[in-house]
Structures are given as C-alpha cells and as structure tokens.
Design a protein around this nucleic acid. Sequence first.
DNA 1: GCCTCTGGATTTTTT
DNA 2: ATCCAGAGGC
Length: 691
Amino acid sequence: MDDHGVPPHRIAAVTFTNKAAREMQTRLFGLSPEDSSALLGWSRRGQGLTVSTFHAFCSRLLRHDGDRIGLDRNFAIYDDVDQIAAVKRAMDEVGVDAKTLKPRAALSGISGAKSKLIGVEGFGLRRESYVEEIIHRVYERYEDILSQASAVDFDDLLMKTYDLLRRSPEVAAIYQDRYLHLMIDEFQDTNVAQYEIAKLIADRHRNLCVVGDPDQSIYSWRNADIGNILSFRKDFPDGRLIALEENYRSTQTILDAAQGLIAANRNRVEKDLFTEKGRGKPIAVAEGYNESEEARLVVNEAARLVRDEGFMQRDMAVMYRVNAQSRAIEEACVRHGVPYQLVGSTQFYRRQEIKDLTAYLRLGANPHDDVSLARVVNVPARRIGARTVEDLTRAAREAGSSIYTVIDAIAGGQPPVAVRARQARSLSEFHDLIEGLSKAAREKSLVDLIDLVLERTGYERYAEEQDRGEERLENLREFRNSAQDFLDMEGGGDLTDFLERISLVSDVDTMNEESDAITLITLHQAKGLEYRVVFMVGMEENILPHVRSMDDEEQMEEERRLCYVGMTRAKERLYLLRAFRRAFRGGQGPSVPSRFLGDVPRELVTPMDVDFAPPRPTAKSAPSGEPAPVRTEAEPPLAAGDKVEHAKFGPGIVVQTKPSGGDLQVTVAFKDGHGVKRLLLSFAPLEKVGA
DNA sequence: GCCTCTGGATTTTTT
DNA sequence: ATCCAGAGGC
C-alpha cells in the first residue's frame, strides 16, 4: 500500500477482532506486535494507519464528536448482561410479563432493529404483529433507560455513529476527507449498520475495498447480512471486492475436503480453491466411545505429534461447536499434563466479581448509570433490598431522573418517596460511598481507585466469603493487574478509556501467542486464525450441525459454512473426531455421525492411527521398577460369546470384538438394563468370567 | 431484608 | 448437571 504513495494515516482498515487488527498492523508495517498493540485503535492525532474493529472505531469517534448528538463523552458501553438488566427493567415499567416475552427475545428484536438502523420510530411504523407491538414499547422504554444513564449498547455504537455522520455534515466531512482509502476485512460478516457507515465515510474518495468470503459467513445470528456483498457491487461498481481463491495456508487435501463439504450448499457461488502446497496427509477420522475418550484421542495424538513429528503444542488447536465441549478436552489435558490455552468460555470480564467491580468503577465515572447502580447497590448486602430498589426506581422514573438522584435527595433530607428511617440511613451511607468514588475517580489513578473500591465497599471480604472465594479474589487481583498494565502502556488513558477497552476486547484478543500450549477454541472464534494442526471434535448430528439448526435450510447451510471455516483453519493436518455416546444435560445419549463427514470425499480420509498407549506409568502403577506390561498381538484376550463382568455395568456377554489402533474394541451386551456398549479393552474395567 | 429451598429452564455461536 | 427465579421462613 505504501508504494502507492498513500500516507498511512490516510488509510483506515476495519477488522473483525482487535487481534486481527493487530496482525494487520504488524504485517503492513513490520511493527512488532507490542508496538502495534500500543497503537491499536488509539493512533494519536492522525498519525499512522487506523486499524481497528468497527466498534472500537465508532466508540472513538463518538467519544470525540458524540456531543453533537447529545452524547456524554464518558458514556458507558453496556454489554449483553447489562442490556438484559435494562430490558427487564423496561419490561417491568411498561408492564410486560417475562412469561409473555422473554427478555432475551425482546433484546434480540431490539438489537436486530438497531443493526438495520431502525430506531424506535421506525420500528413503530413497521410493527406488524402483537409481539412487535410489545417489543416496540419495550424498545422505547429501553432507549430512555440507556440515555438517562448516559449509556450505549454495542448496536448503538454503530447506529449513533451513523446518526452523527448523517446529522452533522461537518463531522462527516472530517472523516470523509481524512480517509483516502477504506478497507473492510471479513466483509461477509458485517451488518447493515456497519456497511452504511463505511459507505458514508467512503462517500468522498470512493475508495472502498472489501475482503470477504461468502462461504465463511457464520454470523447471521448476530445480524450479519450477506446482502451487503450484493449492495457493494451495486453501490461501488468500481470498488474492489477481494474473494481469495488462492489459499496460502492449507494443503491441497485439506482444501479439497473443505471444497467437497461446502459444495453441498445450494445457496452459493462456485469457486475453486487452490494452493501451491502439496497434497499433504489425508484427513484423519476417529470415533471415541464418549466425549472423554474423544478428548483422550486428541490429547494422545497431540502428544505423539510433538514427540515424533516435531510439532509444537502451539501449532495445534482443538475446535468445537459449543463451549460446553471444552470441558472434556480440558480434563484430558490436565490428566495428561498437556499445556492448553482455553479461549473464551467463562470470559474474564463477564465474571460476576469482575462485573461487580466494573459497576463500581462506572459509578465512579457516572453515578447516574442506573444499571450499574442497581447491580451493586446491595452487593455486598447493605440492607437495601429488592423492595427498596423498586421504590427508588419508580420514584426515579416518575421524576424523570436517575436512581442516584433520588438517593441523593434522600441523603440530603428531601426524600421524594416514603422510606423508612433504617433504609434512609443505609442509602445515605451508600450515597457517601459513591461520592467518595466519584471524587477518587477524578483525583486518583485508576489502580488507586480500584483499591479504594475494594476497601470501601468491603467487596474483597465479601468475595472471599463466597464459594470459590479464593478464585474470585484471584480474579480481582488479575483485574487490578490488567489496570496497572493499561496505565503502564504507552499512551495510557483515563478511567473512561479503560472501561471502554474492557468493553471492547474479545476473547481471541487476549490469546497468548508466546506460550507453548494447545489452543481450545470454538469454531466461531477460530475464524481468521490458522494452525498447523486442527482437531475438530463433536462431528455429530445435533452438535455440528447444531440441533437448533435442524429444521431450517438457511441455518443448516450456515452450520456447513461453520464446519468449512474450521477445516480451512488447518495448514497441514486435519482430524475429525466424534463420540459414540455423548453426555448432555445430566443424561447420556447415543449419537449419529455428522452428515458433514459424508460430504468429505472418501479418498481424502483415513482412519486415525490411534495411539492407545496407556498413560505413562506413574509411581503408583509401576512399583519396584518393573517394566510396564507390553501388550502382545498373540491371542485376543476376549472373543464374541465370552462372559464378562464390568465394574459398573455388571455381567454381560461379548457380542463382537474389533481391533482398533493398538487396542481391542469390545461390544458387550449387559444385563440388568444396561444395554449394549462398546468399550475399549485397555480402559474399561472389564473382567473375563469363568474358563 | 436475608437466607434457603425448590422447580424449571437451559447457551449456539459474540463485537 | 447447573444455574436462576420465585416462594416461604426467619
């Protein structure tokens, strides 16, 4: 890009995650990752290339110019937990019962509208069903709650940016002039609001370049709109739409497999994937008895690749459809001493104790943030219960003020609502606490503020007394460290910057690339990443494709694309695993191999060479230096018809045996209603009976 | 107001 | 299985 003589600061590139932004910086300018992470999204005074996510870009724009549309510079960004709280309150206030409409459903209606830039009024004009009628009322109230609190949600970051650019031509002109070139990565996953913003910004120089692959569109549930690609062709006939067909990543075998899979989608445009790389190894497929054995197969194979084939742990990733699947993999890693890095799952900034602490920090920045206030007003318990909060909320609403304003009046001896003396006292104390935090937020450093919160609220002691107290304390400490890091970082920033930062980081952003560990990650999160070795687990009907996509053709195609995304993350080796039985919701059930397995051309596939070597002998299993028993090929220890006894399932009869890797897979029919099970001899607690 | 118990739902994916 | 909301006793 720089050889075209365009100064970097005249270019903006928008990516899907901060991590992708960082990588782009690194690639374009050869900056070290640390340098670029310092620059990331915070490029000062127009210096340097702007690379960030849509949300970070918009947030920055709104902090700078949002006052033009009446937005407070210190607006808070509500995540979905905060949003649900706000929706619940809105539903309460407009008298919608949670049984009529789930808050989650209401929110999804609101979010869907916002991402199409449909405001409350617009929604009111279009509503055409009873549910939409209700959502409209909730939407209206929800917007009031957020604006009263000077808060925006994720969708607002986009929609308000759009509004601002539309309503303030001067502001729009600044950005339109500045950015000679605008580039959007992962274009297939943008929503209407994002595209409209890009269109506005590119309106002057008309240099919009988008990179995307319709076959990797996997975020329609988040309102991504593949129609943007069609719109782009129409709106920018000369614009560049880059759809990479050459894949510099994977072996031809992996590409062919992925191609075979995705070709089964009806609703797509043909394309050929090619690579300069060789054919590589076949795709390995295996079935474990249940999810823990599936996990063990993965971990054993990973260990073998490290031991025998010179791979590093960091070259490998295990990918799954739903976060819950990570549990079994994690356990297997722990058991076998394999280092792993779990991405996401229980996202750090979403943890209860972190959300609570964050709520206090937000209150320090803005005591009128009602959602944060309601969250912690009685955490730790300070005798301000649900009833009182309800009264305060009603009073606030009637006065058109924030809850804090009501508390302030009570503390000042002017209660606008009847409160008992006892409550008034508790509220006054809370009032003093918040006043103290506001003062500290203005005068002290971020870390001092955090310390003050922990001390003055008694939160530290409270967290310790909860279950998992030690872990909670540890998280609080880690949070404090991250604040310290933030301050130490070049450029630093104030409380508002820090709060913004933690709202906009995603889990992939926090991945550690230095540590030598296997990555455990969902297929969605894996988009845009690559690994030498990829293990995809849970290749079963109802998992991938997910059970919720079963009765909808469109969603099924998206599942297939998701599978495609996973497969194309692999550079050299791809493993597809499934389990014969899988535990879910307490119970257990048999499972059916995923239809996607059948779409991979057979000739590319081979059974996984399973390494059933028992776990390394430990002190207790190998006493007196005796060598571990070696399995011989001589005689099968069990055959069909043998009577056996299982430690858990009791007596049974062997139905079938089958060599499997270095092990013997035994199918046993058990008595007493335990049914037929397939077991691996070396692991099942199985004894031969008689003879 | 606070604590414990119970019944019911439950997340699929996340900036 | 686990988490949450609502009920009921203190």
